[in-house]
Structures are given as structure tokens and as C-alpha cells.
């Protein structure tokens, strides 16, 4: 029962038209690892991409982000950046500064990504960004 519910849920997420695309742009292997960890928790996610800046020129990082977004189907996207002030941030802004409905947020963490992949259709686009940022912030706590 649990499995079929989960599969239905996945279908719901992956069949939705005009969905919000996600891209993580991060240092080292962080982007790939965040996505594979997310999939470990919620199952396969679609319309979600990792871009690693390592060993790539800024121009190539910018090009890769533009490529992902220019598939002719992308209307809305959120780019998640690991470090405000880093090349992941400057290159993301470079890639999308002229595009509408593409947002860039920094300080990505796992709770933000989990919320994004499970709720991206449920929110109004503008509302979702604020929700994600709040989610990220409220997950940072002193526990002991």
C-alpha cells in the first residue's frame, strides 16, 4: 500500500506540465550529492539538475546553466546556489540576469531542496521562494 501511494505521488510530480525546474549550482560535488541524497529520501526526482563549477571555466558554467533552461519548455525555474559571494553565485546571476521567472537563491541546504521537490507545484511561484527561504532558515537551530 505504502509503495503504491509513493508511486502515485511520484507520477503526480513528474507528469505535471509547466513545472518549476530546479538547478543546484555548487562547489565540488555538492550539487550532485545533494540531488542523490534527495533521491535517497523521496525517490527519483525529475526536472532537477546539478551543475558543478569545479574544473570548468566561468563561461562554461554560464553556458551549461543557459542550456538547461533553454530546452523550450522551461517557463519557471529556481537556481539554488551554495555560497553567496562565490563563483557559483556570480556565474548563476550572469546566466539568468536577463530571464524572467528564473530566480536565484543562495545558502542551499537539504531541507530547502526536500521542500522544493515535494511542494514545487503546490505553491504560487513567488510565494514558494519565500516559503523555501523560511524553510531553510527555520531548519538552522541550536539544538544543544
Amino acid at each position: 500500500m505504502w509503495i503504491s501511494a509513493r508511486v502515485e505521488g511520484m507520477d503526480y510530480y513528474s507528469n505535471k506540465k509547466n513545472r518549476v525546474k530546479g538547478i543546484i549550482v555548487a562547489h565540488g560535488n555538492l550539487a550532485e550529492e545533494l540531488i542523490s541524497t534527495t533521491e535517497l529520501i523521496v525517490g527519483k526526482v525529475s526536472d532537477f539538475y546539478a551543475v558543478s563549477g569545479s574544473n570548468m571555466s566561468s563561461e562554461d558554467v554560464v553556458k551549461r546553466i543557459k542550456e538547461i533552461l533553454s530546452d523550450g519548455e522551461t517557463e519557471k525555474a529556481v537556481i539554488f546556489v551554495d555560497y553567496f559571494g562565490g563563483s557559483t553565485y556570480t556565474n548563476s546571476i550572469r546566466a539568468v540576469r536577463d530571464m524572467d521567472n528564473i530566480y536565484v537563491i543562495s545558502g542551499v541546504n537539504l531541507p530547502i531542496i526536500l521542500d522544493f521537490v515535494t511542494k514545487r507545484e503546490a505553491f504560487d511561484f513567488g510565494e514558494m521562494l519565500h516559503h523555501l527561504i523560511e524553510r531553510g532558515k527555520e531548519s538552522i537551530r541550536i539544538l544543544k
Binding site: 562547489h27 571555466s57 566561468s58 555560497y83 559571494g85 562565490g86 563563483s87 556570480t90
Partner: peptide, 9 residues
């Protein structure tokens, strides 16, 4: 080629 970025700062 990245000018100001993590490694630099």
C-alpha cells in the same frame, strides 16, 4: 578568471 570568489575571499 573568477576574480572575487570563495578561494580568494
Amino acid at each position: 578568471d573568477r576574480l572575487i570568489h570563495g578561494q580568494v575571499v
